[in-house]
Design a protein around this nucleic acid. Sequence first.
DNA 1: CATGAATGAGAGTTCATTCAT
DNA 2: GATGAATGAACTCTCATTCAT
Lengths: 208, 208, 208, 208
Amino acid sequence: MSVDADTKARGKREETKASNRQAIIDAARRVFAELGYGATTVRDIIRATELASGTFYNYFKSKEEVFQALQDETALRVRPRLRAERVRAKNFEEFISGSFRTFFDFVKNDHTTFATMRRNPEMQRVRIDTPEVVAGFDELRVDLEIAIGSGVMPDVDPDLLMASIVGVAFEVANHMLARDELSVDEAAKFATALFLGGVRALPKRRRG
Amino acid sequence: MSVDADTKARGKREETKASNRQAIIDAARRVFAELGYGATTVRDIIRATELASGTFYNYFKSKEEVFQALQDETALRVRPRLRAERVRAKNFEEFISGSFRTFFDFVKNDHTTFATMRRNPEMQRVRIDTPEVVAGFDELRVDLEIAIGSGVMPDVDPDLLMASIVGVAFEVANHMLARDELSVDEAAKFATALFLGGVRALPKRRRG
Amino acid sequence: MSVDADTKARGKREETKASNRQAIIDAARRVFAELGYGATTVRDIIRATELASGTFYNYFKSKEEVFQALQDETALRVRPRLRAERVRAKNFEEFISGSFRTFFDFVKNDHTTFATMRRNPEMQRVRIDTPEVVAGFDELRVDLEIAIGSGVMPDVDPDLLMASIVGVAFEVANHMLARDELSVDEAAKFATALFLGGVRALPKRRRG
Amino acid sequence: MSVDADTKARGKREETKASNRQAIIDAARRVFAELGYGATTVRDIIRATELASGTFYNYFKSKEEVFQALQDETALRVRPRLRAERVRAKNFEEFISGSFRTFFDFVKNDHTTFATMRRNPEMQRVRIDTPEVVAGFDELRVDLEIAIGSGVMPDVDPDLLMASIVGVAFEVANHMLARDELSVDEAAKFATALFLGGVRALPKRRRG
DNA sequence: CATGAATGAGAGTTCATTCAT
DNA sequence: GATGAATGAACTCTCATTCAT
């Protein structure tokens, strides 16, 4: 067998492998969105693929692991966009406005993923933040600290500001999905105005 | 056996009946806080009481139901306080500041319940909102609408404002629990300032 | 409900409980005998009872545990008989002869149990000694030591003598079951003669 | 590439083929010794080699088959030694003494194999005799019959004598491994004396 | 012939729920 | 109304085996 053939063989194998992994993640995304995290079983996920039950375990150890992979994948898809937006920002308004607009845009267009975080059959809203998601929060906090350091923003508590932005982002996104007539633009304008007006009024940090 | 004893016995029994229900709820609160909602089983809950497994079903139909009862109990404990605070408010500042202060105060002192929303064994943050909790959000929205109607507050979108308040409240509460040195007072001051400053800047509602 | 009724209720319950446990052990005995230890699954055992699958786990944690219970039950049934025989013995001949006869008798009449130790579908012989069985070996060793101490038997190594008796007992029993024409009496006579003749020739113990 | 290299490659390949089989058997021996027969899976065995899972099936059909191959290999290593010892024997004493000594010697020095028969995770002793091992027993029986035929030994039941010898051999070997201070020599002396003394006392065979 | 991912039967086990006591 | 064992559907996961590469 020539090197070429070998390479091709390897290529085919790894291709299948990657596509199977993706198939499982995609199925998981759909099923989580439909049933909610708690009610979903590993069986539900494989049933939603064309793979055999055992195959799931070649890729993930458990429901938790595939969920995490799913959240991480999502986070890794949004985070660069958000970062780019913040880096490009020339002032605080652009920083805030770009962030919210990008996030709401993503939520509107990647409905399924975000829905996972929201619904289950018992009508309870569930939100789970995986480490990768939390890392995205952290990135925001760091950028806020930089903005404070460079004088673009007043010296407020970056932790609490980050928390507030995240809280507003998720809750408003939720309402946007629930109320169809609310556009990305309106949602972003609302959240941006709240923070532009609010930040000026925030207490300056104690120096510890 | 005297009539007194009989009466006492009857009284005792009804007391037991009520206290069994409470015992289950209390056990559920502890177990949910320890294991997280998803990992908790009905068995775990009864094991944490002195009752037999069958007894559970004299009071609740399922894990979902007891969880709901638990959340409802909590919500019913906070909601009147929050309502009272808002009713007593003579202006928008008192409205906002009283709400946040009351909520953060509750979170700090009723740690366990709020923890349920945060912990699970995989270090992920989980938040579940039951209908009763959502009803509390609704109450806030209604009060916001009243405040807008009476001119105490500018005519902003009450849905989005409510969502923002809720988002900030939960996220900042989370940070308060994570960062021990952050006091209820500081947290409340931060959130209050954000909204006092922010609301003025919010876009006025379109008339539809 | 009167105390009587209470007692009766309790009685019925515990009766069922005990009989279920016994039903599982009996089924296990049959199934192990037929399939051998290795090939037997917990499911095979419950299928051989009229109980539901989950019920098994109210009584035993695993195949190992039920097997042990089974072996122990057996050992506890034979050991007293063997002990009685040895205690009744007025000399070494009666000691040995009574032991072998009792053991072979038991094997012949409790065919099923002993078979468990012998066959599995791959034609391999399997023997598993649980702690309770080993305890029976120990009892024999202690009785041998007593016999040596009282001068009834020469001062040979009781460990090795016990091991030899056990080895001969199991192997000869095996052959007795394989060869139908071999009677308990013949088997016992053979083994007894071997040890009566052999013990005299054994090396005396080194004094350490 | 020269003819030499080609030849070498071919030789290497066949060598590999043979050595793969041996590698599997060796791995099986180690794994069985560690986990016991029942708990060992084919996966455990291949994991203990450097081969891929599919490769296993080029050499063996199942766990049973590799176990059998392993036992056979072992039996084939001991049986010729035992046979040689018995053939060389000039009288009954040498016959018996040589057999036990050889067996105990083997057990002491090939610890691992014998351990398979003894250990399992639950502290129970397990003994499994494969057909090849049983064939070794048979060889002994045939040699006993020859010895009887040639008048070297009294006319006792060769089946039962063989069974007794095997029983004593395995049990005493077990004790030898458990009690470190017991030497091969002492064990062999004990077993030999038992049978030398015992055989004289054994009942003569009925003529059927 | 080696590889190692896919397969899917089936083992072990859990658990909400029922129901005789 | 309390009890707790029985139930059995359904889940998680393993593993021998196959087969495309």
